[in-house]
Design a protein around this nucleic acid. Structure first.
Lengths: 66, 66
DNA sequence: TAATAATGTAAAGTATATTTGTCATAATAG
DNA sequence: CTATTATGACAAATATACTTTACATTATTA
């Protein structure tokens, strides 16, 4: 799975730390997701959706290996 | 988080077992998600999105407790 | 340049998703 | 009614998300 969180975060112009606080996770969680080290839960995806004001499918996409 | 998987599955007219096979998880996983026993991963949500031909936000919604 | 903020990452621990196996019950078909 | 299929649910084992702590590196700013 690939994601555009880094880009969406740049649009909001906030740090990983700030994004983490807004959705209630640790900074490392955001960092790890941006680095594709693991796949987030759907609750986390929906919270990002609210914050970014965009549907989940806009910033999370399946890849070959999924 | 609440979901409408049972309804989407009814629209496709397939069993939990069939849905599970189509997206590559066990039947118990589908059953547990429909029963809100746990929250699926975003990869699973995206696979359902493909199958249902609808955005994730259409069948997964945040609730108070999220 | 020096100080500070932001990011990348790793390890250890906890929480939770998912699998496999199993059983009970409800619904459906013969 | 009987056999079969579909669903609900639980327990144990495994995989993985997420937290906390910690440290190194890369910007950024004074």
């Amino acid at each position: 799975m690939e994601n555009r969180i880094k880009i969406e975060r740049a649009i909001l112009d906030i740090t990983q730390e700030e994004l983490a606080q807004k959705i209630g996770v640790s900074r490392q969680t955001i960092n790890s997701i941006e680095a594709n080290r693991y796949v987030p839960s759907t609750v986390l995806a929906l919270k990002l959706s609210e914050l970014f004001n965009k549907p989940v499918n806009d910033f999370f996409k399946l890849t070959e290996d999924d």
